[in-house]
Amino acid sequence: MTFDQIRYFCAAAQLGSFSKAAETVHISQPSLCIAVRKLEGEFGVQLFQPSRKGAVLTEAGRIFLQDAQNILTQADLAATHMEQFAQRDRAEVRIAYTFSLADAYIPRLLREFSEQEGRGCCIYSDEMPSDQIAQGLREGRFDFGLGSQIPPDPEIEQIPIAWQRLCLLTPPQDPGTYDDPAEFAAAPLICYRKDYPMYRLLSELFQERQIQPRILHYGYSEGAIARLVEQGMGIGAVAEIEGLEKYRVRVLHPAWLTGGRYIYLMRHRTRMVTQAARRLQERILAQKKQNGGQTGVP
C-alpha cells in the first residue's frame, strides 16, 4: 500500500467516478484502476462494486475510506509541520550573552546581521551570566551563547573570539592613581557578584598579589558597577568593555592589575541549530579572524 494508491482510491470514492478521479490526480484512468485493483488484491477484499453508475463503494470500501482519509490528513499535517520547521530553521535564532556585550556589541552585531543575510529572521536574545548560558545550552534553550570562560564541560564547545583586559574605574573627582596595591586595598571596592566567573578571576588575582580588597558592594555587570562608581560609592575592578566611555568614570590601568578575560562563543557539541543561527555564528567567527581576536570587543 502506497500513499499514491490511497490518494487515488480516495479521489475515486469521493468523486464517484474513475475518470474524474484520474483527471484530478493527473494520471490516466487505466493507471488509476490498476492501482485500485492492487489495493484490493493486497487486502483480499473488493473496494468498489461493479456498477454502471461509476465508482460505488462496497461495505469494505466505506470502512477503508475512513481510515484512508485519516492517513492522508495525518500526512498533510506532517508535511505542514515540516514546512513550519523549515521556515523556523531559516528564520529563527536563539542567543544568550553576558551583560558586558549588551551595550554596544550585540546591538551592532544583530543590526548588521538583520540588514544583510539575516533579513526576516526572528531573533530571541537573553542577557545572563556565563554559567547560566551554559546551562541553557545543555537544556537546548539557546542555539549558542557569548560569554566568559566556564569550567571545561564535555557538552559545551568554547571558542575564544575576543580579549578584554582588566581595568579600574574611579570617580572623575578621585585623585588616586592606585599604582600601589596598598592604596587599592584601602579603597571601597565594587566587585562582581560572587557567583560570576569574573569574581573568581579577580579573586585569584588578588590572592596572587596578596591583596585583601575592601569589598563593600557587589554589582550585576560592568555597567552596573560603573554607575555605582559614578555616584562615588567606591572604585571598580572590571573587564574593559566597549561602551565604558559613556560613563562619567576614569579608566585606569595600574601595572599590578594584569590579565583579563576572553569572550567565548559557546555552543553545544552535538545539538543541531537553525540555519540562521549557523550564519550568525559564521559572521562572529569571521569578524574574529579579521581582527585576530585581540581587541576588547569581537
Rank of each mutant, 00 (worst) to 15 (best):
G61L: 14
P107W: 04
A187P: 15
S148P: 06
T270D: 14
S28Q: 07
H26E: 11
E83G: 03
N291W: 05
D89R: 12
H268A: 14
A187W: 06
S148C: 07
L257V: 15
G61H: 08
T98M: 12
S114K: 10
L77I: 13
R62G: 11
I156F: 03
D67N: 03
Q14V: 13
G147E: 03
I34M: 00
E155M: 11
K38I: 11
A91N: 14
A102C: 06
I95W: 02
S51H: 13
I225H: 01
A60Q: 15
N70T: 11
R37M: 05
L77G: 06
M272R: 11
F142Y: 03
I63C: 04
V238H: 01
S221K: 15
C33S: 09
L65P: 10
E240C: 14
A13H: 05
R267D: 02
T270K: 12
G296N: 14
W163M: 06
P298K: 02
Q210R: 05
A237C: 15
A75F: 08
L205W: 07
G243R: 07
L110N: 13
P188T: 08
M266K: 09
R248G: 10
Q210W: 00
A60T: 14
H268K: 12
A35H: 05
R267P: 02
D126P: 00
L15F: 08
G118R: 04
I263Q: 03
L280Q: 03
Q281S: 11
G236Y: 15
A68E: 06
P107I: 01
A86I: 06
Y178G: 06
Q210Y: 00
I34Q: 00
R119A: 07
Q281Y: 09
Q5G: 00
E40D: 12
L228N: 14
I71A: 08
A276R: 07
Y247T: 05
Y178M: 11
T177D: 08
G243W: 07
A55T: 15
E204A: 09
A86F: 04
I63G: 04
N291L: 01
M198I: 13
H268R: 13
L101K: 07
L280V: 01
I161T: 00
E242C: 07
L205S: 02
G61I: 05
V229H: 14
T58D: 15
A276K: 08
V251T: 12
L15I: 02
Q287A: 07
R248Q: 14
Y105K: 08
R269P: 03
Y199R: 10
P151D: 04
V25M: 03
